[in-house]
Amino acid sequence: MSEPFLIAEGMTGGYGAADILHNCTLKVETGEIAVIVGPNGAGKSTAMKAVFGMLKLREGQVRIGGKDITHLTPQARVAEGMAFVPQTSNVFPTMTVEENLEMGAFLRRDDIRGTMEQVYSLFPILKDKRRQAAGELSGGQRQQVAVGRALMTQPRLLMLDEPTAGVSPIVMDELFDRIIEVARSGISILMVEQNARQALEIADHGYVLVQGANRYTDTGEALLADPEVRRTFLGG
């Protein structure tokens, strides 16, 4: 079997003197959804930021499609096919939805209309609101703009930092459905989620982090079935 599309191996590092991540490993296969869950302060978002190069690693390496990108800046990783949707302030609030998508495709010099149509067919509501400022949209719609903006770069790996933070349960289900659809189109997805149970339900692989280290790693289904994981992280 060929190696997974994204491999982040043995990541150790933090923002300052103290390490937050301890030998943390994440892998994502092409077109699959990997979810990072864990208690507050477990370093979930930090692990994702490390994958994206927003954090200096002391040890470990990150490879995408077999290429070592450990020393690339986040911007250079975008060019390598990574796209990142931050948890907060992930849209350009005074710009219209359409302009937000255009900015997502800033680096592309080819015709972006096809990709934009794909985003609109994925999130039909955005097409209706394309002339509206993104800052005026509801939380769920704004998340859609944020995901849409990231998709405009035609990434091979989409990273989502708590995409459902602060949206209603109905909108959350809707967003998860869309994320599955994105994965089906062949884009790998790495996602940090607070709503662990729902996220593991759609996950091919789940990583339970505790204090910056891998605690449990398995398929989403197996993690959900594991009584130990259920008791400690999913509330029974």
Binding site: P74, S89, E102, M103, F106
Partner: peptide, 22 residues
């Protein structure tokens, strides 16, 4: 214009502008 929009994007959200390759 593309450049003008990128300036507005940068003014709106600097970090996201960087992520978009501006």
């Amino acid at each position: 214009t593309r450049t003008g929009k990128s300036m507005r994007a940068f003014s709106d959200n600097e970090d996201l502008a960087l992520l978009s390759g501006i």
